[in-house]
């Protein structure tokens, strides 16, 4: 039964397939009914680009024009790691860790790749203000490097709670502080003064890259790092 759909009755499945097909065709019809003439927001964004502080329109939308979406989204990411940690999963050792003891190739590859990945992440974040890139792309690469390190067990799991937690909250914290700080200056929430916008966006993006990368890598781990570290030490002593 495992590995196959569990609705055994044939007729139930036939009805389901028919329903899915009808629903799919309805969606296709809806998509085709969309006007071919794009009435997109590009023409709204373009004239206001000089106010945004950056030249890449996607970054301008993400961190300036629709900054509220991005702020809440970072909140969702932070919420996800809190929710995952609150489940108190049991630490597991990966199969790769055992494999690591037998081959030097992975360790060599990780040593070679991680510095390059961090460099790429920094570049992506930096270039985000003018071309394709930004905090999320950079953060994803940082996360990739983190996952590699975790899989290869090349770094000891961090045991300093405060430091780790402040790194996780840092991106969201600065973003929220800047957003709220604008209220003190008499602007609206998230309304940056155009002459300061670039430096504010760059600062937010830099911290976001670190926070996003770390959060994603720790989501992959699933376990609270210091709990896993204690467990690991206990196993090693046995």
């Amino acid at each position: 039964m495992r590995g196959r759909a569990n609705i055994t009755q044939l007729w139930t499945r036939v009805i389901l397939v028919v329903c899915s097909v009808v629903f799919g065709l309805g969606l296709v019809w809806t998509a085709l009914a969309l006007p071919q003439e794009a009435t997109g927001l590009a023409r709204v964004v373009k004239p206001r680009m000089p106010e945004s502080g950056v030249t890449n329109p996607v970054t301008a939308v993400l961190l300036n024009f629709r900054g509220y979406d991005t702020l809440l989204e970072i909140g969702v990411l932070l919420l996800a790691i809190i929710a995952v940690w609150s489940l108190r999963l049991a630490p597991t050792r990966t199969a790769l860790e055992r494999f690591m003891a037998e081959t030097p190739v992975l360790a060599y590859l990780v040593r070679l790749l991680v510095p390059v990945m961090l460099l790429v992440a920094g570049y992506l974040t930096w270039i985000g203000s003018s071309r394709a890139g930004g905090a999320f792309q950079g953060g994803a690469v940082v996360a990739g490097a983190g996952v590699l390190l975790l899989l290869a067990a090349m770094v000891p799991l961090p045991r300093r709670r405060r430091l780790l937690r402040s790194l996780l909250v840092m991106g969201f914290g600065l973003f929220l502080a800047v957003a709220g700080g604008m209220l003190l200056l008499g602007n609206n929430l998230l309304e940056y003064p155009p002459e300061r916008a670039y430096i504010l966006i760059l600062a937010i993006e830099t911290l976001l890259t670190v926070s996003i990368g770390l959060t994603l890598a720790l989501l992959f781990l699933g376990v609270i790092p210091e709990v896993a570290a204690i467990q690991q030490r206990r196993e090693d002593n046995v």
Partner: peptide, 20 residues
Amino acid sequence: DPVPHAMVLTGIVVSVSFTA
């Protein structure tokens, strides 16, 4: 249009959070 692009970036992060 940059707005849907930004929405997709937001969506990817939310879907990663959901999946995790």
